[in-house]
Every structure is written in C-alpha cells, then in structure tokens.
Design a protein around this nucleic acid. Sequence first.
DNA 1: ATCAGTTTTGACCAACTGGTCAAATACCTC
DNA 2: GAGGTATTTGACCAGTTGGTCAAAACTGAT
Lengths: 205, 205
Amino acid sequence: MGRTSTARKRLLEAAIELMTETSYATVTVDAICEHAGVKKGSFYHFFSSKSDLAVCALEADTQERRPRLDAIFSPTVPPLDRIRTYCQLFYEKQAEAKAKSGHVPGCPLFSLGTEMCRQDPHIRRKVQECLDIRAKYLGSAIRDAAEEGLVPKSDTEMKAKSLLAYFEGVLTQARIHNDLSVVKELQYGALELIGAGRLPEQKAA
Amino acid sequence: MGRTSTARKRLLEAAIELMTETSYATVTVDAICEHAGVKKGSFYHFFSSKSDLAVCALEADTQERRPRLDAIFSPTVPPLDRIRTYCQLFYEKQAEAKAKSGHVPGCPLFSLGTEMCRQDPHIRRKVQECLDIRAKYLGSAIRDAAEEGLVPKSDTEMKAKSLLAYFEGVLTQARIHNDLSVVKELQYGALELIGAGRLPEQKAA
DNA sequence: ATCAGTTTTGACCAACTGGTCAAATACCTC
DNA sequence: GAGGTATTTGACCAGTTGGTCAAAACTGAT
C-alpha cells in the first residue's frame, strides 16, 4: 500500500481555520502548508488546486459537525428546544473562539460563500450544499413545531430559509463588529422570526 | 486651479460595482482603472492605495443613498410602513441588478466587511460606520413603532441590530444562491422579528 | 527482505500584483 | 496669453502567487 499520512487531514483543518480567520484570497497555499507542517509538493499530491482544497475542507467540516447536529435535532427533542439549543451552540462556539483568538470568527460558509460564489463554481456549489443541509435541520424542526401548534403552519419552507439567513447574518455581523451581544440574544429573535415568540417558554411534556 | 476631472468619481463607482460583483481581492487596481477609463498613474494621484479607494467608495456610496433613505424613514411616515418600504426597496434593487447582470449582487457592506474586517482596519471601521447608519434608521422606526404600541417596547436597540443582521443575512443568502425568493418575503420576516407579525396590516391613520 | 505504491521534498517558474515616478499635458485664473 | 496647478501618461519594479516536477524516501503487504 505504501506509506500512510495525516497530512491531508492536517491540510483540511488548516484550510478551514485560516480561511475563516481572514479570507480565501488572503490565505496562501504556502501559509496553509506551513500551518499544517506540509511541504507544497505534498499539498498538490493530495489536492489538485487551492479551490479543490477549499471544497474538500467544507465537506470535511460539514461531515464532522453532523453527529452533533443529529443529536441536537433529534426528533425525540421538542422542536423549539432544538432551535434553542442550536442557538446556544452558536453562541458558545463563537464565544469560545473569541476567547481563544480574540476575534469572533463568524461562519466559514458565509465568508467563503460571499467571497467566492461569483468566481468559483465548485466552491459555490459546495457552500450551497452545506447551507442546504443546515436548512433541512431547521425545516424539520419548524415543521414539527407547526404540527404541535407551536408556530403557524404556513410557509414552513420559507421560514427555514429565513431563519438560516438570520443566523448567518447575525454571525457575520458579529464577525464584522467583533461583538457577540447580538449572538447572545439569537434564540429570542429566532423564535420571533418563525412566529413562536409570544408563546410561553414551555419545555413540552 | 489647473484642470478638473471626473476620474475620481468614475473610479469610486467602478470600485463599488466591481467589488460587489466579485470581491476585494479579486478586483485588481488595473481592472478598476480599465473599467473607469483611467490610467494607473492617475489612480494613485487620487487615492493613496487600493484600501483607500475602498474606504472612499463605501463612504461615497453611503452618502449617495442618504436622501432616499431619509425620505423612506421620514418621521412623517408610519413607522412600520418605513420598514415595509425599505424591504421593498431591497427587493426591487436586487431584482433590477439581477435582471441586468444575471446575478443577485447582495450588499457590498457585508461582502467587503466579511472579507476585509480582519485584514484592513480602515475598511473595517468604514463598514461599521455605514452599518451603524443603517441601524439608526431601523432603530428610530422601531422606537416610533413601540411608542405607538405596534411592537413591544423592550430591547429596541437590540431589535434594530437583529433586524439589520436579518436583512444582510437574507441578502447574502440571495447572493450565494442567486435566488431572490427569500428577499421577496423579507418584510414579513422583518415584522415578525421585531414582534409586529401578528398585528393587522394597518396603514395607520 | 523486497518491491510496488504512497508520500515527501525543495528547487523552480511564469504570471500577476500593488505601487512608483518623472515627464508631459491640459485647464482654470488672472 | 501667461503661469501655476491639477491631471495624465506609460514605462517600470520588486514581491508574491498558485502551480510543477522529477527524484528521493518511506511504508505496508507479501
């Protein structure tokens, strides 16, 4: 089989980290290699291009998050609680990152997506895929909530998209202002947005 | 006085247009110059750097929008109507741009802001300034609405920030997906978000 | 131990980038 | 129309970038 290596994985992680920190264009292949402890020749052994790396990094990152999201959005959890927990996770993740680096990172899907959607069709498609996955979690929760009469039954698909846009918008605003205060209140806005705002905070039986 | 020129203005407009189309890093100074019909030497006569151009372009763009926003957010207009009209303006602008270029442009504040906030303090500050101006329009409308009992009176400042984040998130999502459907429904989400969702659509007396 | 296949290395390159500069030129003011 | 200023020009540059390549080194399976 020949030798094995963790270089590929290290490159994927370095890519997500560095590209979230600044931007796709700013992060050079050399910088990613250095951060991953990999020589450039090796880089092009594992990836056909910088763009290819970005696509693979988004995919890997999404797959890695999957188990946790599956748990949070389990159908056994009361639907509005899923959304509450998800919001809380957002805040915790961003707060943790800020504590570590001094900066609110925001969401790589939106950062990369905004920057690259006009230039690189592969990155664009992958970002869309990853966003669609998130929308599915939210859509399912909203539909289940509607079934229980917790939110209006109309337009659940649109509500899922709007809610995702709201999340990403808040995260991006937090990145730009380096201020988490709006993220902290995320769940209240989220529940308002889908029409569950003025209900009592029942934990469901 | 020496000769006069429109080169500066042309450069500012080209910068906003091209940077919105793709990204800060992708747009080269040469490209901006070509698009504006200006030689590079002239560019550096008017601007000290590419970054300087971006800052000035954001400022100019914001000032240009001011009169229209002042009209929309006039205190003589019923507060929720201000927000409705603003949402409609968003949709119309994006739809118009898409019809012309084939692409939903999104908002340069968010595009540039996300991309550059970690690399260029001047761009970052200018983006923050411009976003703050928009938040003021929204904040004032929300406060006036609260005064009239149209929305809950709590946390109006936070609501303005959240609403702006929602707008920008929806616009950015529309850019990434090149799909205006979520923008079309913007006003309903907006009113829900600030807690005016389940009120009748009164045009106010 | 061997060998095929995987991974690593580092030197190399052409293209492009933001930015410079000194000289030429046009324009407004008087 | 003279003169000073604002503008224009285009050639130039040094640094950086993504990407290449052929040879070397390592590893697991047999």
